[in-house]
Simulated assay, not measured.
Amino acid sequence: MSTPRFLSLPPGVSPVQIDTPHGQFAALEATPMSGVIERLPALLVPGLTGSKEDFIAILQTLATANRKVVAIDMRGQYETPGPDDAAAYTCPALGNDVDAIAMAVGDGGPVHLVGHSFGGLVTREAVIDGRTKFASFTLMSSGPSGIIGPRERAGRAIMRELPELGLEHVWTTRYEPEALGGGVPDEIIAFLRKRLFANNPTALATMAAQVLDQPDRTEELTQIEVPTLVLFGEHDDGWPPGVQAEMAARLGSEIVVVPGAVHSPAVEAPETTAAALTRFWNSAEAIRRPAV
């Protein structure tokens, strides 16, 4: 479970609702504090048990490059409601939502797309399905197929325990001890509890199953002509760094390894992460410009 660096919103960042044909999605929108929006917008998608707040520490910095940046809660996450229907939370279904949100954020034009962890598997669906033309695609702490290692075990525990024992058990036996052991401040622990309990239980269980069992779609992604970045922490405990590096090589993509970070670079190393994204996005936009 990622822990936002701070919960108060920095200047230039506001809560908004994104209206789409698929319904409304809760979001945080960052815009430049000075100057005008002259670059393509960006859309940030969180991981399992995460939310838009996981990107708070980088939103303002990203927007200073004169672009609009939007972070969302996916359907069934935190402040975006969802139905008690598992079919709404498969990667293809959530990818369809991302397509619709991207169209709204970009007013029909291209956007830079970032998917963190499980959000990487979801956004990959949107890129591969070809319904939306993206300016670039970043896989942040995500992998080629289902998650492995310690986070795989946590995901399987959620699938096993949630239907029988409920969210209270999952919180008190797993997430609360992890937060307390990490020295997380009380106010952030309170937020993490509120966020977990706001998730639709069907969404949480289905997403946990999805993050475990996704097939490797790297070869399909290589067929899509979109600038791609693979970014992860040097100590990632989700998909191992070597697995993500191998995926980047197969994609022929850029790669950024964030020093000192684990599974949430936007939280653990926000300035490094924001700088890497801004450089990559600017480079992708330069490629898009026609020669004079």
Rank of each mutant, 00 (worst) to 15 (best):
R67M: 10
A42S: 11
V69L: 10
P32Y: 14
G35C: 08
I18H: 11
T20I: 08
F55G: 02
Q17A: 15
G23P: 05
L62P: 06
N66M: 05
V36T: 11
P32F: 14
F25K: 08
P32H: 13
L62F: 03
I18S: 09
V36A: 14
A27L: 12
G23W: 07
S34L: 10
V45C: 06
A26K: 07
I37A: 11
H22Y: 15
G50F: 03
D54C: 06
L59M: 04
S51F: 03
L28H: 13
V36I: 10
E53W: 06
H22K: 15
L28G: 10
I18A: 13
A42T: 04
I56S: 03
Q60Y: 00
A63H: 01
P32S: 12
F55K: 04
V45T: 00
H22M: 14
L28Y: 13
T49C: 00
L43W: 01
P32G: 12
I58M: 07
M33G: 13
L40V: 03
A65C: 05
G35V: 12
R67F: 11
I18K: 11
A63W: 02
P21M: 07
E53Y: 03
A57C: 10
A30N: 10
P41S: 03
A65P: 08
A71H: 06
L44M: 07
